[in-house]
Design a protein around this nucleic acid. Structure first.
Lengths: 247, 247
DNA sequence: AACTGAGTTTCATATAATGAAACATGTGGA
DNA sequence: TCCACATGTTTCATTATATGAAACTCAGTT
């Protein structure tokens, strides 16, 4: 019981309340109290603080709370850069820290993919991913993602144009695409680099266009099948978050 | 000393810290401590809470704090509607509550203006402003704003086309435009409605285009010259805030 | 090596956040 | 009309909890 807490409970509670508004657009005090399992008295004070500072606004008609203008002010300030590689780096670092493995960001460029950003694992044995590397679209988890989630016509064209080592390779690749779309992520084990495995998920921008693939990769003995499934969830989550940062 | 506090201090402090990021994009712990005049120990804990919940992220290189992904998630959720009238209503209500006077929102439609939104004062004597009303562009504080801050070519055309009661009226109107641009707001006293006065400021969207005029209006005996100056500051502030909500 | 400055952790203390309960207000049902 | 119920607001005693001083790292300077 000595989990030394370096955080402030009241603040965490307030922020949790604020986070509720990522799902719902309007919430009443009692709804919030129910969702957070806090006493309405406590919620009332926290809401007053949030409202007083402009982070929530009260809809005079419905009496419910909505997100306030402060959020816009903050959001307006963050979008200085449009470059996903720059924009997403901090989030990728977060992800690296929680997964402990190298995180890469790929965009498709014609019939290739480019690693436009990467943050390296800091474990002794790690996958090192050079930024700027151009890689084939025919192998690797992120390649599958970039193809599986491409627009149908683009996808068809890519599958025509791309070259595989053998027709069997091609069929194996194509055969996976359906599952990948269904699961929302792709994996690869020792496909391009011996000893390396990866999990990848698509990043859609706010306009719902596929813009990149986000991947985690590491030594295949550390990325067991089980671990990969766990990582997949976090990669998908992270990719969704990041997508909201891109217009 | 009985200022009954219905808010939570720790939360307010945390939110104040977050608000610092509307101006600066990156801040270190000590910078934050200095700006907020809080002990670095306190700031440290608040920052840990904010970071833990994703409202701030640490730039691994600079060690400084930046706005986190949560803000995007929240911002993404709020922009369901693009209609300024709908979007700005809660903010207008806020403003109404702090000024105690009727708040109106006007857009220009050709050679007229339309009151696309209004929230009414709740004082006994109040200006009642019907939504949807079409009004002339040649009188009233908001008309002056919509013309003074229009694009130069549009402005020139409007000044040509609009009709005034007399050439003297026209000259008086045109003569004010320079001051209005300089001050950032316009006023009118008993111009269109006898007994009514108003203050108005432009709303620019995030692309820096003039989209509307935000006005406060009330009985001219309550809106003294002094009061109008005070209100002008708040209207300008509010208009800036609201502009950030419009793309 | 000593010094500065930024960040982090520890710790005793009193403040300040808490939750129960009472109060207020409003709405719909009987 | 009156009662019941739900939602929001305020009060208040209690103690947990946030606080700030100080001590402690850890780097980078001189």
């Amino acid at each position: 019981m000595d989990d030394t807490k370096l955080t402030v409970r009241a603040v965490e509670r307030a922020l949790d309340i604020l986070s509720l508004f990522t799902d719902e657009t309007e919430l009443s005090l009692t709804e919030i109290a129910a969702k957070t399992e806090l006493h309405k008295s406590t919620v009332h004070r926290l809401l007053a603080s949030l409202e007083g500072k402009g982070y929530l606004v009260r809809n005079a008609e419905t009496e419910k709370y909505r997100i306030g203008f402060r959020i816009w002010e903050l959001a307006a300030n963050m979008s200085q850069s449009d470059d996903p590689g720059v924009l997403l780096q901090p989030e990728m670092e977060r992800l690296r820290d929680s997964l402990g493995e190298t995180i890469s960001l790929y965009v498709r460029d014609g019939n290739e993919r480019i690693r436009i950003q990467a943050v390296q694992s800091n474990q002794a044995i790690r996958r090192v991913a050079p930024i700027g590397a151009r890689l084939p679209l025919s192998v690797g988890a992120s390649s599958k993602v970039l193809i599986a989630f491409a627009e149908p016509d683009e996808q068809a064209q890519l599958l025509q144009e791309l070259e595989w080592a053998s027709p069997a390779d091609r069929d194996a690749f194509v055969g996976q695409l359906g599952d990948i779309r269904r699961l929302g992520y792709a994996t690869s084990i020792e496909e391009r680099e011996p000893g390396a495995a990866a999990v990848s998920a698509p990043i859609y921008n706010r306009a719902h266009k596929l813009v990149a693939a986000l991947g985690v990769s590491g030594p295949s003995n550390r990325l067991t099948l089980e671990k990969m499934k766990e990582h997949a969830m976090l990669i998908i989550e992270g990719a969704n978050r990041m997508g909201k940062m891109l217009k």
